[in-house]
Simulated assay, not measured.
Amino acid sequence: MNTAPNQTVRVGVDVLDRSELRRLIERPWFLRFGFAREELAHADTLGADRRLEFLTGRFAAKEALLKVLGVGFLQGVTPREICVEHGPHGAPVVHLRGRAAQLTPSSVSVSITHKENVVAAVALSLPSAADAAVESGRTVSTDAKEPANVSPPDINTTATLQQSTPGEQAPEITAFLRVRIGQEEAHYGGDLVDGARILRLFGDLVTEITVRTDGDEGLLAQYSDLRFTAPVKPGDYIEARGRLVRRTRLRRVVELQAHKVLSARPGAGESAGAVLDAPQLVCTAVATTVVPHRRAGTATTPHPVAEEA
């Protein structure tokens, strides 16, 4: 549309297949180039499959926004200057920095959707007459397939189980554990702790979530997307987190991550330790647990976390 400058509306659309970014997101230089710190911090809390979906969606949104701005990645704007975060109810919210902020013609909005391996994003520059409404939150785009499951749980084990009113995003259900790995748990040469120790933490998280949702411990059926990404040694402090991402009549699917936050430093002294500058991911997995039929439908939250079939 080419009307008066303050009434111009621009639309940008981008479509990506997740396979296009599968290898790129394993390269540190691409992550630094393509994503803001907030986006990477959230991606590190996700399982492998959801992480790929999340980053692909964010990159598609950046491509769509650049089309709205009328520039490319090699014309002075880098993707990390475009940060696509979650709003209070899960809708994508855009924050522009650096040169990207200088080129913004007016308020911008973006929507992201997923279908199997395909991710699509639509960006829209809103007319200046709508700016006030955007800033007050009345015209923020909504995206039912971008759930508001972005904030990590507090230090204590958490699970929000309040009833949702019609039309609101169902609150997430999470669990959290922090443990210190003892010397007696070293299993392999070099004081390495076996991966089963982390899986026991994951099992406790899944059990807590099913007790909270169904009043039953359930039966763990399988792990998928299991990855061990860093060694664990005695003296390390491990934070493990679980998040319910899907519910069916009998099954509960939980995303799990474990991070090392404090590390022993035997080279600096027998009792030396250090707080890591950033939590180090040591393991991710997705767990599926089954609850008895007699308990199905007794959960305290009536709707599953928003997610595509």
Rank of each mutant, 00 (worst) to 15 (best):
L219E: 14
A285S: 13
I181F: 01
K145A: 13
P292N: 11
E255A: 07
A36M: 03
L256P: 07
V245G: 08
T301Y: 00
L52P: 04
R97D: 11
V232R: 00
G70M: 06
A258F: 05
V291W: 09
D154E: 15
T213C: 12
D277M: 07
A296M: 06
T300A: 13
D44T: 02
V11N: 02
S136E: 15
T104H: 03
V13H: 12
V275N: 00
A130K: 10
R212N: 11
H86S: 15
F228H: 09
K233I: 08
V84Q: 01
A268Q: 15
A91R: 04
I112Q: 04
V68F: 04
F33N: 01
P127N: 05
D194T: 15
G137I: 05
L219D: 15
E53C: 11
H303M: 08
D216G: 07
T289Y: 06
V15S: 05
L199Q: 12
R295G: 04
L69H: 03
R251W: 04
L74K: 01
G167P: 10
G182D: 12
R197T: 15
F35Y: 15
I82W: 00
A287L: 03
T165D: 07
T139F: 14
S151N: 12
R18C: 13
V77M: 03
A299S: 15
T229V: 11
L256F: 10
E217T: 15
G190L: 04
L21T: 02
G218H: 06
P147V: 08
W29S: 14
L205S: 11
E81S: 00
T56W: 01
R80L: 03
R99D: 00
I173N: 07
F59K: 00
A4Q: 10
P153F: 07
G190S: 05
V275L: 06
H293A: 14
I198A: 13
A101M: 04
N2V: 12
E308Y: 09
V134A: 15
H259V: 06
T157F: 13
R97N: 08
R178Y: 01
P5W: 07
V291A: 06
P279G: 10
V290L: 09
T139K: 02
E208G: 13
L250P: 02
L161V: 09
A309F: 09
T45N: 05
V150H: 13
D14Q: 06
R23H: 10
R249I: 08
R251V: 03
V119W: 02
F30I: 08
V245P: 09
